[in-house]
Structures are given as structure tokens and as C-alpha cells.
């Protein structure tokens, strides 16, 4: 139905992420990540330095004592927050785009991505497992494949996808796979490879709808963050939303229904706070 070679080509033509962001994602993902190395890397990126100092000194960071150096800012905010800031600032212009094929108005994909990233920041407090540091990046970029996939979904193809969903009760991703032999998660994985992001980020993005196939904790976590993001957005819009996490994922992550019920309000509150900081809504 669609030219897969052309699809891959377009995924590989997206504007690359800044070198500092890619390097930072690698650095923060290392078990021996050193705060000084992070500060040194950021110090060479003037734009990121300004953003970091502004964020560290903002009211939302909750401290009265001003921060003057990159190292102090990294120490105050933590490496995960710094990575959040770097990846979010790099990806935001891209993720702000309208994607009509998926019913996404301008800014909608970005808001959903931020909600998932916030969920990624919230999960470690509710999960006994060691959450890989790449989870944030995978969560923020999990739907990036929709940007390119959306360009190929003609009204005719969208009609077939809709009929597959109605007739065979397939999820969007299953319908994409059946009819197009590719889904937006896989395409997102190709974009992440093109951006030279770490392999675990690629895995998390690729399998965010079908984590059983990914065979890595990050796939379960990225799946979870996507579901939590949907619940956050539904809650804010006052919509009904059936929050059903795959039993196998919940078991692997050691999450009970109560844990999930506790996690979502915390993530929602944090989302509102973060949206204020990044002016996302």
C-alpha cells in the first residue's frame, strides 16, 4: 500500500538532533555517569546552558538560593531533569507539528509526549525496579514515528485502517501492521537510529505498543508511560478513559492496580507543573 523504501528514506531525512543532546543521552545512560562530565558537556553548548540556568533558577525549581554555574544547576536539578530539558528543547519544534492523519492538532503530539515523559519521571517512585535513565527519552519520543507515517496515510489508507479497526476490532497499530507491513513504533525506532540515540531508546520507541516483543524493561516502561499519558490527558479533558495496563507488563514491573491509581495523580500534578515551565499548554 505504501512504498516502504520511501518511508524509511523520509525517516532518515528528519533534521538531526543537536550533538550535545545525543551525547548527553549516552552519558546519562551510563551506570558510571559523572555529574562533572555532564556539566562539562553542557558548558560547551551555549543555548542549553542558558536554558538550564533559567530552569534551575525558576520558581518551579523550588529554591530561593540562585544558581550561578552549570555544575550547580546540574547538581540541583539532577541528571534526569537536565536530560529532560535537553531532549525536550531539541524535539519540541518537531513534535509541535500538526499530524492530521492521526487526528492531532498543532501542539497535541507535543503535549502527549510531555505527559509520557513526565510519567517516565514519576514511575521510579512507584516501581521497585531500576528504571533505566533512557526511559525519559524513549517516553518523550515514543510517537515520533507518527510525524513521518502521517505523511503517507492517504484518506484511502485511513479508510482501510478504520475498517480493519471496526470489522476485526484491531488496535491502530495492529491495523497499520496488517495493511502497511509497518507501524508508527517501528518507524519511530528508525528515526531514533537516524538520530544516533542509544539502542535502548530505539527499543523503547519501537515496542511502545507491543512490549512483549521488545524483551527489554524499557519497552514495558515506555508502554506504561504512554498509557499513563493517555490517562493524564483524559483526566484533564474530563473524558471517560478506561485505564487498562497489560497484565504481563504490570507483573513484570511489579505494579498493582493500587500503585497505578496512586501513580497517575502524581504524574498529572507534575504534568501541570511542567507544562507551566515549558509553556506546553
Amino acid at each position: 500500500m505504501i512504498d516502504l523504501d520511501r518511508l524509511i528514506e523520509q525517516a532518515n531525512e528528519l533534521t538531526p538532533l543537536p550533538a550535545t543532546t545525543v551525547r548527553l543521552t549516552e552519558l546519562v545512560g551510563r551506570p558510571d555517569c559523572d555529574l562533572e562530565d555532564v556539566a562539562e558537556l553542557i558548558a560547551f553548548d551555549q543555548a542549553l546552558t542558558v536554558k538550564l540556568l533559567r530552569a534551575a533558577n525558576s520558581a518551579a525549581s523550588g529554591s530561593a538560593a540562585p544558581v550561578g554555574t552549570v555544575k550547580e544547576a546540574v547538581a540541583r536539578m539532577g541528571t534526569a531533569c537536565v536530560l529532560t530539558l535537553a531532549v525536550a528543547s531539541s524535539a519540541r519544534p518537531l513534535l509541535q507539528a500538526r499530524v492530521p492523519a492521526y487526528g492531532l492538532d498543532e501542539g497535541a503530539l507535543w503535549r502527549h509526549s510531555v505527559a509520557a515523559a513526565v510519567a517516565a519521571e514519576t514511575v521510579p517512585a512507584f516501581c521497585r525496579l531500576d528504571v533505566p535513565p533512557e526511559t525519559f527519552t524513549a517516553a518523550l519520543l515514543h510517537d515520533v514515528g507518527k510525524l513521518v507515517m502521517g505523511r503517507f496515510l492517504s484518506p484511502e489508507i485511513l479508510g482501510f485502517i478504520q475498517r480493519a479497526q471496526e470489522v476485526d476490532h484491531l488496535a491502530q497499530l495492529e491495523a497499520e501492521s496488517l495493511l502497511l507491513n509497518v507501524h508508527h513504533g517501528e518507524l519511530g525506532g528508525i528515526i531514533a537510529q537516524h538520530w544516533k540515540l542509544p539502542p535502548r531508546v530505539v527499543l523503547g520507541i519501537t515496542y511502545h505498543h507491543n512490549p512483549d516483543q521488545g524483551l527489554d524493561l524499557i519497552c514495558d516502561l515506555t508502554y506504561l508511560t504512554n498509557e499513563v499519558a493517555k490517562r493524564i490527558e483524559a483526566g484533564l479533558d474530563g473524558r471517560e478513559f478506561e485505564f487498562a495496563i497489560s497484565g504481563q507488563v504490570a507483573e513484570r514491573l511489579g505494579l498493582t492496580p493500587t500503585t497505578l491509581d496512586n501513580l497517575c495523580p502524581v504524574a498529572a500534578s507534575r504534568y501541570t507543573q511542567v507544562c507551566g515551565r515549558y509553556n506546553a499548554v
Binding site: 516502504l4 524509511i8 509497518v182 517501528e186 518507524l187 537510529q193 516483543q213
Partner: peptide, 12 residues
Amino acid sequence: FNQLEVNRGLPA
């Protein structure tokens, strides 16, 4: 195999 195909289940 294209990039999509080698990403499906094949360890690096």
C-alpha cells in the same frame, strides 16, 4: 533486508 526488517527481532 531493509532497515525495518533487520530491526525486527535481530540482535545488533
